[in-house]
C-alpha cells in the first residue's frame, strides 16, 4: 500500500482537509453540534490515515510516542484544574442559553477551552490505541 502513487497523492490533499475540518468542529463546539470528542476523533483519523499510507516512521518523525503521552497528560492536568476552578466557584462554566459568539473564546463560559483540551486528549488517545494495536500490543 505504501507504494501506491494515487493513494499517496490523494492523501496529501485529504489529510490537511480532514485536519482542518476537525479543528473547525472543535472550535465550533460551543455554538453548534460537535465539540471535543467528535473533533478529536476526526483529528485522530487523519493521523491514522497518515500512519496507514505513509508508514509508521513518517508519523513518528512528526511526533513520537512520549511526546504524545506528555501532551495528553498536560492537557488532562489543565482540564482538571479548569474543572476544579469552575466547580469550586459553583459551576459558572455552563452558561444559560442563548450561548456563544463565534470568535469570542470565553463567550460560552469555559466550554471552548475545555473542548480544545478534550479534542487534543481524544486525538492522542485514539492514535496511541491504534498504534498499540498495529504493533501487536505492548
Amino acid at each position: 500500500m505504501k507504494n501506491d502513487i494515487v493513494l499517496r497523492e490523494v492523501c496529501k490533499f485529504m489529510i490537511p482537509a480532514i485536519q482542518l475540518y476537525a479543528v473547525y468542529i472543535i472550535l465550533h463546539g460551543h455554538i453548534s453540534p460537535g465539540g471535543g470528542f467528535a473533533g478529536g476523533t476526526i483529528l485522530s483519523c487523519s493521523f491514522i490515515i497518515a500512519h496507514l499510507v505513509f508508514g509508521r516512521d513518517y508519523v513518528k518523525s512528526k511526533f513520537n510516542f512520549n511526546l504524545l503521552i506528555k501532551i495528553m497528560s498536560i492537557c488532562l492536568i489543565i482540564y482538571g484544574i479548569i474543572k476544579m476552578y469552575s466547580f469550586l466557584t459553583s459551576g459558572t462554566h455552563l452558561p444559560h442559553p442563548p450561548i456563544g459568539v463565534p470568535g469570542n473564546i470565553l463567550s460560552g463560559g469555559f466550554i471552548l477551552p475545555l473542548n480544545i483540551l478534550v479534542g487534543i486528549i481524544v486525538a492522542c488517545v485514539m492514535y496511541i490505541v491504534f498504534d498499540l494495536f498495529m504493533e501487536g500490543g505492548k
Binding site: K70, M72, I77, G80, M84, F87, L88
Partner: peptide
C-alpha cells in the same frame, strides 16, 4: 469542597507521573 478536592488531587497527581 474537600471530597471534590480529594478526587481531583489524586487524578491530577496520577497524570503528573507520565510527565
Amino acid at each position: 469542597y474537600f471530597p471534590l478536592i480529594n478526587v481531583f488531587v489524586l487524578m491530577i497527581t496520577a497524570f503528573t507521573i507520565p510527565i
